[in-house]
Design a protein around this nucleic acid. Structure first.
Lengths: 210, 210
DNA sequence: GTCTATAAAAGGATAGAC
DNA sequence: GTCTATCCTTTTATAGAC
């Protein structure tokens, strides 16, 4: 019995669920690789190898390499969106929410860094899809809205000064992207320290004394 | 007479200088393309076409594709370093220097964005060279030192509060990278507006009232 | 120096057996 | 569903003429 046959034998039975698993395995392998290096630097065979399947199988589950990339990007954005919603719905108090927001970027730094990397690669690629463009827009909108709301709440209860809530939100969001990028270019970067500095600056910006 | 022969005839005479020009033309074409898309997405023929020469000629001037990429990266960093030094040596007054520093990132946004993109591509590539790693480290060191010095001077003359000058410098530098990245992912981003917000936050952070 | 021609390898994608 | 075999195209790189 060959390796492949053994594997097949183990997975025998409900073939529907297997297919979903396999699809997910391939997607996961693709996401890992696409977020490490560039789209064109990743080969179909490499993805298949990481997923532990034959490269032809990728064409059974996905139309072509680009479709696989799109699926991987949507997956990454969806996961991040989930984290965002979780933090947002956990806090009613604006200071706690924003502190936790910053903390999340330290804790999940490697995931968020991957997302930023993959978003950059997509943005500087030729072929854009309307759907993905919308997904990405939506994603940043959600982030900005969560932060904007928090700043507004802080102003309403008299904790923060009268700055533009939207500007403050864009500011924090942009800086966090900067931290992620800098930690790609300079892997030695002290992410926690960089986020601490952002926290100090952000509170100074909105006029909050911790 | 073919096109190529005509071009050759025009360039007749001192062949030494011609070689330098041609070398530069190729390098310039490579830099343009490498900063637009990823290393692996750019082909030798594409570079040659943009430079207006045959693709084989690239191997006369550069050992291989990687050597050409390295040269392009050094060129981009060198150019940015030149801009940095220029702004730094123009000001003795810290507030002016920092304001001009921010302004430079608006004015030269497309160049700096390209640099950030190419630095990211290099960082997430497999093959690293000791020389390039050092060039990049040096580059960020120079930026941090210029800003750190300015903050220290501002503190000495009593304009700024007692914050860590290095932390303030890293903060500004990181945020500017964030602005560049965000403007890649979202081309609609209002760069001038984003830098304005940074300016406000930075002055709040160091306790300066403009 | 610059080009033509071409070798050599790699990568994406498909046909078809099982 | 998954694999083997293979085709086709692209791409890097070299040899050699001019």
């Amino acid at each position: 019995m060959t390796k492949a046959q053994t594997a097949k034998a183990i997975r025998k039975g409900s073939s529907q669920k297997d297919a979903l698993d396999r699809r997910q395995e391939i997607l996961s392998a693709a996401l890992n690789l696409f977020s490490m290096r560039d789209y064109s630097a990743i080969t179909i065979k490499e993805i298949a190898q990481l997923a532990g399947v034959n490269s032809s199988l990728l064409y059974y589950y996905y139309e072509d390499k680009e479709a696989l990339f799109r699926a991987a990007l949507e997956e990454a954005v969806g996961a991040a969106m989930g984290n965002y919603d979780e933090v947002a719905s956990k806090h009613s108090e604006p200071v706690d929410l924003i502190n936790d927001w910053f903390q999340m970027h330290v804790t999940l730094a490697s995931d968020i860094r991957r997302l930023v990397k993959i978003l950059m690669d997509y943005s500087s690629s030729q072929s854009h899809s309307r759907v993905l463009d919308d997904v990405i827009s939506k994603f940043y909108d959600v982030e900005i809205q969560i932060l904007t709301k928090a700043v507004k709440r802080g102003q309403r209860v008299g904790l923060f000064n009268k700055v533009s809530p939207n500007a403050a939100a864009v500011f924090a969001s942009t800086h966090l992207d900067g931290v992620m990028v800098r930690s790609i270019i300079q892997p030695r970067l002290d992410i926690a320290g960089a986020v601490d500095a952002l926290r100090d600056a952000f509170w100074a910006y909105v006029g909050y004394k911790p």
